Computed example of a mutant assay.
Amino acid sequence: MRPIHTLALIPVLGVLVAPFFLNRIDPFILGMPFLLAWLSLMLVLTSIVMACIYFVDKRTGAHGQNDMEGAQK
C-alpha cells in the first residue's frame, strides 16, 4: 500500500467516527441538520479523495497495463 492511499481513511473516519461527536440539530446548513450536512460533505469529499488517489497513481504509473488483474501478457 502506498502512502497516498492513507488519504482514503479521511472519509471513512468522517462517516463512522464523527457522528458520535457531531450528532446535533443546530446549526442548520443549507436547510439541513448539521449531521446530514456533514454526511453529505463526506460523500463529496470521498469522491474528491478517490479522484486524487487515482490521478496520483496514474501519474506515477501504478496503473500500468501489466499490473491490472486479468490483463494479457
Rank of each mutant, 00 (worst) to 15 (best):
P19C: 10
S47W: 10
L22Q: 10
Y54S: 02
G64C: 07
M68L: 12
L9P: 02
I4H: 12
L9N: 08
L39V: 05
H63E: 12
G64N: 11
H5F: 07
V56R: 14
R59W: 04
M32H: 13
I53G: 03
P27H: 02
F55A: 04
L43C: 07
I48M: 09
R59K: 14
A71L: 04
A8K: 01
F21G: 11
A8Q: 04
V15A: 13
L43H: 10
L45P: 04
G70R: 08
P19D: 05
V44Q: 05
L41G: 15
I10K: 05
I25R: 11
L41N: 07
R59V: 00
G70N: 11
A8G: 10
V12N: 01
K73T: 05
L7M: 12
W38K: 09
E69F: 09
I29C: 06
W38F: 14
N66I: 02
K73P: 13
P33H: 02
D26V: 04
M42R: 08
H5R: 10
L9S: 07
V44A: 15
L22E: 09
A51Q: 03
V49A: 01
L45V: 06
M50W: 10
M42G: 06
G70V: 03
G14T: 01
T46I: 03
L36D: 14
I10E: 05
A37M: 07
P11N: 01
F20E: 06
L9Y: 14
P3R: 15
W38A: 03
P3W: 15
L16T: 11
M42H: 09
L41K: 04
A62W: 12
E69A: 09
P33C: 00
V49E: 03
M68R: 13
L43N: 09
L22Y: 15
G31K: 05
P33N: 03
L45Q: 01
D67L: 13
W38V: 03
T60R: 12
L45E: 01
N66R: 11
N66T: 06
V17L: 15
V56D: 12
V12W: 09
V17C: 12
A62F: 14
I10S: 05
T60K: 13
V49D: 02
F28D: 03
G31Q: 08
H5L: 07
H63V: 03
P19R: 09
V44G: 10
Y54G: 00
L41R: 07
L35E: 08
G61P: 02
G64L: 01
F55H: 11
A8F: 06
A62C: 07
L36E: 15
T6N: 10
F34T: 10
I4Y: 13
Q65G: 02
Q65K: 13
F20R: 11
V44R: 08
R2G: 06
L9V: 10
L7Y: 04
D26C: 00
I53W: 01
V12P: 01
I4S: 13
K73N: 13
F21W: 14
L36Y: 14
A8P: 00
L7S: 08
D67G: 13
F21Y: 15
M1C: 07
L9I: 08
M68A: 12
T46C: 07
I10N: 06
I25D: 15
A62M: 12
A62H: 12
N66W: 03
I10V: 15
S40Q: 08
H63Y: 14
A51M: 06
M50E: 12
L39T: 06
V12H: 05
D57Y: 02
W38M: 04
S47A: 12
S47P: 00
P33F: 00
L30R: 10
V44F: 15
